[in-house]
Design a protein around this nucleic acid. Structure first.
Length: 88
DNA sequence: ACTGAGCGC
């Protein structure tokens, strides 16, 4: 289950997401999206969990909650499929 | 160093 997390604190790290979601289930992967050129946090990230149901309740549990001193938005992530071509 | 809606190389 891929999870999209937005409105993160700019100093929040990937391990912070992993720790936050790991409290509700097993986190398979967690990543903070940073700027490719400067390396600064874009303020959002992605979390992948092994259990879909735990990920789902983790979303409703961590959505609009405070993380690292900032309220975050947690939603199911969209597929990375592009209109040009990618995943079929 | 800063900013604050939104989807990752």
């Amino acid at each position: 289950m891929n999870i999209f997390v937005a409105r993160l604190n700019f100093k929040t790290r990937h391990e912070d997401l992993e720790a936050a979601f790991a409290k509700f289930g097993q986190v398979t992967s967690a990543k903070i999206v940073k700027d490719r050129d400067t390396g600064r946090s874009k303020g959002f990230g992605f979390v992948e969990m092994a259990s879909d149901e735990e990920a789902n309740k983790a979303i409703v549990a961590l959505n609009e909650t405070e993380l690292d001193g900032r309220q975050i938005v947690v939603k199911p992530a969209n597929p990375k499929t592009s209109a040009d071509g990618g995943q079929a």
